[in-house]
Amino acid sequence: MTLVFRTLALILLIAVLSGCAGPAYYAQAISGQLEILAKRRPVEDVLNDHATPAQTRRQLELVQRLRDFASRELLLPNNRSYRTYADLERPFAVWNVYAAPELSLEPKRWCFLVAGCVPYRGYFAHDQAEQFAASLKQKGYDVYVGGVPAYSTLGWFDDPLLNTFIHKDEAELAGLLFHELAHQKIYVSGDSAFNESFATVIELEGIKRWFQQGGNAKEAEAYRLKVQRREEFSALVLKHRARLKEIYASDSSDAEKRAAKVRVFEELRNDYAILKSGWNGYAAFDNWFKQDLNNAHLAAIVLYNQYVVVFQTLLAQHGGDLATFYREVERLAQLPPDERAVVLQTRMLAANPLKRE
């Protein structure tokens, strides 16, 4: 499909979205995507450009190897995605707005034609994201705005490499590519926890296999520590989230729930300080804790972790055979939503009996 036809398809797609947003939102989505498409350049052209900084050139050469590895070893789509480069001249590709009621962990959702109903709404301009977040705050919602370095158009377009993530270290760059390509491999409309958990497992497995086949040993060890600390961070957040869930479901008054909520977030900060004291100066999550934490922040964390153990267990059951694993994930994806949720929850508890999320 030519760029013109794809662009028209995008405009049609956005135009027939559900009534969750008005024309202004559709306009910024169209212009934002078109800007990215217009700025794309073939990686080969960027590499041959004498004005390209040496560090950028090295990263693009690394990406070429990672991209080929993804298709050859991880059986991810072999297409033109991540074969071009675009400099957006900003720190993030989009900013996602998350929201949740003051005394509930159930995130607000917005519905779109292809993506389905998701617990966030994306903006290509930071100020527009903040304006929308402010309007939600006025309605009493807990709100969180998070910058996103990359996103997948799910195969509608050939997604480019971006300046927003190209200078990440080897492991993080590999993980991002594998994660976004996984969304092109399997995606269930409206089931964000399924999609993100699946993509996270492909990200983790892909990085492991990349380093096993000759990646930088020092980078591999640094990545192992990052994963360990990310898991410890997630476990800490989910533990306190479980306490909040009990508080919000209790018969306490709203005033009592608000007071308990404040205490839980204070304890979360204190427990993080204790956890971090054993990390030898590693501070990747400090900025997260510098914010005014609320229920919306927790929605973003759960989104990427909820069913990771289910997919990791499934992959292990098939001896790491990705082709078989993908077929099994496709079967889960094709189940009716309610049935799929029951199956995933049952398998999650079987893999981790102590988990009650």
Rank of each mutant, 00 (worst) to 15 (best):
A350M: 11
A333E: 10
T56G: 04
R80I: 00
G320R: 11
V227M: 13
E73M: 05
P107K: 03
E44P: 00
I207K: 11
A99I: 04
L136M: 07
A220F: 02
S234E: 07
A21R: 03
G155L: 06
Q64D: 07
F5N: 08
L34M: 15
E106Y: 00
L136R: 02
A220W: 02
P77V: 04
T52M: 08
A150L: 06
K355F: 09
Q28V: 05
K208L: 12
N96G: 03
T56N: 09
L354K: 14
A182I: 01
F92S: 12
F165Q: 08
F112T: 05
H179R: 10
D286G: 07
Q184M: 05
P23H: 03
L34F: 14
D286S: 07
R209Q: 15
I247T: 15
A38T: 13
L105F: 02
F178S: 02
A29I: 04
Y82H: 04
A259V: 11
L177M: 15
W156S: 08
E330F: 00
I30Q: 05
V148R: 09
N96W: 01
S71V: 09
E267T: 11
G122Q: 01
L275P: 02
E205S: 12
D49C: 09
A133I: 01
A222Q: 13
E231C: 00
A171K: 02
A27K: 12
E266G: 06
G320E: 10
G19S: 12
E203F: 02
A235V: 01
L344Q: 04
V145S: 00
I14V: 15
V309Q: 09
Y141R: 07
V329L: 03
C20H: 12
L314E: 14
A150R: 03
E35N: 15
L314H: 08
E205R: 13
R6W: 00
S189M: 06
R230S: 15
H183V: 03
W156K: 12
Q184H: 07
V143D: 01
N96M: 02
V342M: 11
W156E: 09
A296Y: 03
R90Y: 04
F69Y: 11
L236E: 05
S277L: 08
S192R: 09
T7L: 08
Y25K: 04
A235E: 11
W95E: 01
L354E: 15
K257Y: 09
L76Q: 01
R209H: 11
K290T: 14
Y151N: 04
S192Q: 12
E203L: 06
D45E: 14
S81G: 11
Q306N: 10
F198C: 04
Y248F: 15
H297C: 05
L103D: 07
